[in-house]
Design a protein around this nucleic acid. Sequence first.
DNA 1: GATGAATGAGCGTTCATTCAT
DNA 2: TATGAATGAACGCTCATTCAT
Lengths: 191, 191, 191, 191
Amino acid sequence: METKIDNPSVRKNELIEATFEIIARLGFEGLRIRDVAKEVGINPATMYYYFPTKEALIDNVIDYVFKRMEIFIEEAPGTPKEQLHAHLTRLSRKMRDDPGLFAVYSEMQLRCRRNSAAEKFLQYETTWSKKLETLLYTGIRQGYWPNYLDPEQVAGTIILIIQGAGLIAGQSTRQIENSFNQIERWMSGRY
Amino acid sequence: METKIDNPSVRKNELIEATFEIIARLGFEGLRIRDVAKEVGINPATMYYYFPTKEALIDNVIDYVFKRMEIFIEEAPGTPKEQLHAHLTRLSRKMRDDPGLFAVYSEMQLRCRRNSAAEKFLQYETTWSKKLETLLYTGIRQGYWPNYLDPEQVAGTIILIIQGAGLIAGQSTRQIENSFNQIERWMSGRY
Amino acid sequence: METKIDNPSVRKNELIEATFEIIARLGFEGLRIRDVAKEVGINPATMYYYFPTKEALIDNVIDYVFKRMEIFIEEAPGTPKEQLHAHLTRLSRKMRDDPGLFAVYSEMQLRCRRNSAAEKFLQYETTWSKKLETLLYTGIRQGYWPNYLDPEQVAGTIILIIQGAGLIAGQSTRQIENSFNQIERWMSGRY
Amino acid sequence: METKIDNPSVRKNELIEATFEIIARLGFEGLRIRDVAKEVGINPATMYYYFPTKEALIDNVIDYVFKRMEIFIEEAPGTPKEQLHAHLTRLSRKMRDDPGLFAVYSEMQLRCRRNSAAEKFLQYETTWSKKLETLLYTGIRQGYWPNYLDPEQVAGTIILIIQGAGLIAGQSTRQIENSFNQIERWMSGRY
DNA sequence: GATGAATGAGCGTTCATTCAT
DNA sequence: TATGAATGAACGCTCATTCAT
């Protein structure tokens, strides 16, 4: 009676996306596997063929979130400064166009505190942070930013702002853009 | 078996605090009124003598959070610059010593998106933001900060950082302190 | 703080009336002693000073119902036939003006089946039935109704109709009046 | 532990019947879905697989009651007079043998006043009434009953008696039979 | 792969009732 | 008399999960 799916990973992805969508809308507080199944059009029991538990499903959403954020674009062209600018621009645009993504991101951030299973999330964040640090380090060495900047520290600040922005993504787009610009200007030693 | 309480508001506060504690530990996701009651040592039914619904209880936690954050200190002594510094220092110390407070704060921030009943939270935030803006405005006019700074915009950036910091309060204390310092330096036009 | 009531029976009656009113509106299914207390303006706990249990309160409503129905009017003037007519007329008028009374009456009738405590209700009914029987007996002996009528049987039929009417009191006033008239005509041997 | 049922409608019927039985015994006042489930031998949660709410379950009991009353017999053989007689005989026998049925019927009748959702009940009653009316109309036209009888009015009276009888079904079987006979006699113009 | 039917545990909430004051 | 504060038991209902088919 049910449309058979050739590639099981297709159905798996559907489930992950549906889960993501519900978390974006209702938070972990409002996540019910019933609703996930209904959204995909399958029986809740069927979900257990793809994921052993609700928690396992959520775990997969973590990967999905970081993939959807497209945060790690290696081979971006341009100078480090241009790359950072592109990164922040891309982020602020995403926050405007896909605010749910950042809602889920923030939900997960909070969940890290209490759910050890979500440490995968922290690994992603560390990777991201390191990438940013390297970019800053390179930029400073190449003279794009003043050399009194501490790459690690500045990277941390940038990430703090991004995360703060993520909390209100979709609500104060203008403020987020302004703050990103401001940081860039401050980094350059300009007001 | 039960312990009678002289002042009913005492019990009310106990309930609010217990609720706060559980949200800090488990998030809204893990908040159960049975656990709140158990923490306080009363029958779950008794809770309904003090609060008509779970949501009403949560509503009271909002007030509690902002009171506990001690964010609005009117007549603080010192120059605007010193006041801002005191504000940020106090916050970073609080984040270190009372990280749960910021976990709850962030949970609530996220909840605003979906629960219209929590708009009281947004009102608190607006008040906070306006206070900060006024402080910056005064400081700039009095020459404590360069006058090319836009108070509204900078206040927004500071709050963004604070909220981002709140998400990881208790986890990266050093980074948070550094970032607060950095912002202060940047505002002063120093590196 | 509370207005003291001089005569405790006044308060008792208030409670009984409030209970009656709620049963009329919501049935036994919807009777809550909380609501009774609120209607009277007292604390639910206070009710227990007047009645030891909810059931005891209900028990008192039985008396109230029969009193309010004013079914047993002895010294009515006129012939037995006129008395019966007056009785039925009074009832149909009451059904129109005070339908809740008959809702409660019917609720109680049903409750007799399952609650032995309500046998007081059955006693009232027996009394009523006997009265009616005597009236018919007298009327037949005096030639007001044909002597082939069996008083006991006809009294039973009349009460059946009245109780059936009580079930729909306030909903089909016209039908009830017609049926009462019809029975009277039939009894008289007229069509 | 659980007994799997082949036909899901079987279980559905079991639930409806168990609900019916409990209402018959305890009234709506005493209806608990936990008891219904226990009677059927399933987990209370399972009930919600078959009926979305308690109210929906009750709704199905309405259909069940009218089906069980077998009130609408279309092509019964015999003259209208014989049909009416058969109808009343069947009813009085049912009241004797299955008094709970009429207890539930009366409970529902009362519930109509307050629960708009139960208007399905009223529709059944209207249908019944109309059927009876038609039967009387035909019988009068064909000379089985005197033509001074008003079909609508007499049908109403009969239903009133039946409903009154239903209230005491199982308690006064003899009286009920007598009253039904009496009405039939009166209708025929005999004493 | 997929589902219908089932469940144990638990949820927010209500209720009649109690009792010290 | 009256009440504020409390409670055990239960209620309608939901949830993640299971399992035979």
